[in-house]
Lab assay of single mutants.
Amino acid sequence: MDEEYDVIVLGTGLTECILSGIMSVNGKKVLHMDRNPYYGGESSSITPLEELYKRFQLLEGPPESMGRGRDWNVDLIPKFLMANGQLVKMLLYTEVTRYLDFKVVEGSFVYKGGKIYKVPSTETEALASNLMGMFEKRRFRKFLVFVANFDENDPKTFEGVDPQTTSMRDVYRKFDLGQDVIDFTGHALALYRTDDYLDQPCLETVNRIKLYSESLARYGKSPYLYPLYGLGELPQGFARLSAIYGGTYMLNKPVDDIIMENGKVVGVKSEGEVARCKQLICDPSYIPDRVRKAGQVIRIICILSHPIKNTNDANSCQIIIPQNQVNRKSDIYVCMISYAHNVAAQGKYIAIASTTVETTDPEKEVEPALELLEPIDQKFVAISDLYEPIDDGCESQVFCSCSYDATTHFETTCNDIKDIYKRMAGTAFDFENMKRKQNDVFGEAEQ
């Protein structure tokens, strides 16, 4: 370990593993360490099931009705991949897709007046949907046509809207959309967690709705994908990429100290040895004095023996409960997957309800979601602090990732990755940087 590296990475969460992969592909010498004996950090999948019970201090362990412990891979952080989103792009560019198998999530649902409705995925579904009345549908269709044709580089498509100054509230007004449709559009399509976006320039919202539609167009059922064997497969896929390009991995490796000289990182000390480096990437748990708390998320993992009611017996789905429907500031989400994804025993389902904490009784906040899941065989409640770095790391060369937020997709995580890359490399992130180099010394032969 007593060696000189360009970059040392602490923690094998998804953000850290993707950055480690990119740095290795770009010719950097990388050492990647984790104090845990497993990959994934906060974003790991726990197996066998006995391990999950232990982690949540349920000492009696799983009953026999849960089947074989080894058949379970339970995500600690519930997220899906947008089919046309940035993480899929990263997987394709790096060819990490060859280590993973994905399934399309069967449906996306939205909560309205105590019931759940399928988010329409085709024009026919939209016309048949009970989510809105006849005239509302016509106006909504006009709005969707506007979004589909919108091109930020072609003012002819703006229809009198200025993407940089017109607020989204004004765009909704222009198409005369009612409150329910606005809730549905902002939260189930643009996937905002709160209503803060309404008074911001509309460009980002329009682009988010386009991303949803384009992702949906790829597979038809929903815009989301999920990897077989759980999300823990993602960091491992990128760790393989890093290793192929010469990255060194050490799990179960305690970090005793991060060594600084004149305010700059110069190395990491572990078990009496020092590895030197020019730059350091880590998750917040490794540098508690360089991060601040930015809120909390509650996630309740529920094991069920039945599909969720009114989802047409889907073996995977997402449910969004827009905040307006339950008098909150932030949406509540449910991600459900099952034995069909090799993450649970035969006939079992895993539904994870999550939201940003707003009160001193977080469990009560998630109740509307839990009511949709009854009866629940077993619950595991996790309340996590969200951390963000206190500075950009440019001076110390210590670059810290943000905690995983309450969103049900990876777009915010990818933004964090691109942002850290830019601060480390001094140049904007470009997907081309992730391409495997042809015929290089570490390149794998085609399968």
Rank of each mutant, 00 (worst) to 15 (best):
G85N: 00
Q279K: 06
T408H: 09
I308K: 12
T15A: 10
P62L: 08
G347V: 03
L59N: 05
G41V: 01
A148E: 00
A243L: 07
C400W: 01
A275Q: 14
Y339N: 06
S270K: 02
I332L: 05
H409P: 07
M82T: 06
R436P: 06
Q179H: 07
A369F: 06
N84K: 06
S121Y: 00
E432M: 15
I182L: 11
I244P: 14
S316A: 11
V110G: 04
N312G: 15
D199E: 00
G40M: 01
L234M: 00
Y111W: 03
N315T: 09
D162N: 09
I390Y: 14
Y192Q: 15
A445I: 08
G114H: 13
E16Y: 01
Y245H: 09
K329W: 13
L304V: 09
V105M: 09
R276L: 06
V398I: 14
D170A: 12
G347D: 07
T427P: 11
Q447L: 01
L370S: 13
I321F: 10
D71P: 07
K418G: 13
K435G: 15
Q323L: 08
N439G: 02
G230A: 03
N73T: 11
Y421V: 13
S213R: 10
D256V: 13
Q86R: 08
K221R: 10
E365I: 03
Y172S: 05
E388G: 07
L81F: 02
D75S: 14
C17F: 00
L373A: 04
D34I: 13
L127V: 11
E159R: 02
S65N: 13
S384D: 04
E395S: 14
P37R: 09
I308N: 06
T408Q: 02
L234R: 01
Y404H: 09
G61V: 09
L91H: 00
A126I: 05
H409I: 10
F238V: 02
K364N: 06
I308S: 01
D385R: 14
I244V: 08
A351D: 00
I417F: 10
N207S: 11
G186S: 06
V145D: 05
S401G: 02
G232R: 05
A239G: 01
G347I: 02
T122M: 12
G232Y: 12
A314R: 03
L251P: 02
Y421T: 08
C17D: 06
K253S: 01
V147L: 09
Q164W: 08
E358T: 14
G220Y: 08
D405G: 06
R292W: 08
K142T: 08
E16Q: 09
V268M: 04
G347R: 04
Y333L: 07
I77S: 08
E214D: 05
A83T: 09
G61D: 09
K418Y: 12
E388D: 00
C402H: 10
